[in-house]
Amino acid sequence: MFRFLKLLGKNLAQGPSTDPFPAKEAHTPERFRGRVVVNPEQCVGCRICHHMCAGGAIRIEDNEEKTGYNFTVWHNTCALCGMCRHYCPTKAITLSTDWHNAHTQEDKYDWAAHYSIPYLACAGCGAHIRMLPPQLAARLYAHSPVDMTDLLKLCPSCRQLAAARREEISNDTHEQE
């Protein structure tokens, strides 16, 4: 019993260890998994995040005019598990460290992040494509130094055509030597 009295004495001496949260901002570790944030430029529309999301919080749907797609994340069913961030090929979807998410019932269905991401027309055939993000392209074309800028504007099939044409030209130059 005296051991516990000693502990109480120590407690009294040390004073309260309450962290003054409502008055002062609380410490948030930088690896904290908070609200989901999407970077529209990086998004390629591959829907991996939709496939991985166990809470069904991500919805990717072409808009009516098919000129782009709506990317919606409803935070009220997002379990903050980080699967989308881990498997997104271009790190477009990330988890911020914002945890101030208490809101009233009226905002229940507003508590979502809406992004509309435009399609681009392919330079070659005009098909709807998502431009290849630079770092993904860098990884794809790492081994063959090729002028990147115009390639990025082509849809996959046009890129194959361009690659085949490039091979053909390089073969001709070999034959000429």
């Binding site: 409502p22 809470g55 101030h100 208490a102 019932q105 508590w111």
Partner: peptide, 23 residues
Amino acid sequence: IPVDVNVPGCPPRPQSIMEGVLL
């Protein structure tokens, strides 16, 4: 049940639960 305050999170941080109680 008519709900008044939502504190999303899985689980929400104790601080955000306190914000919910304050709200």
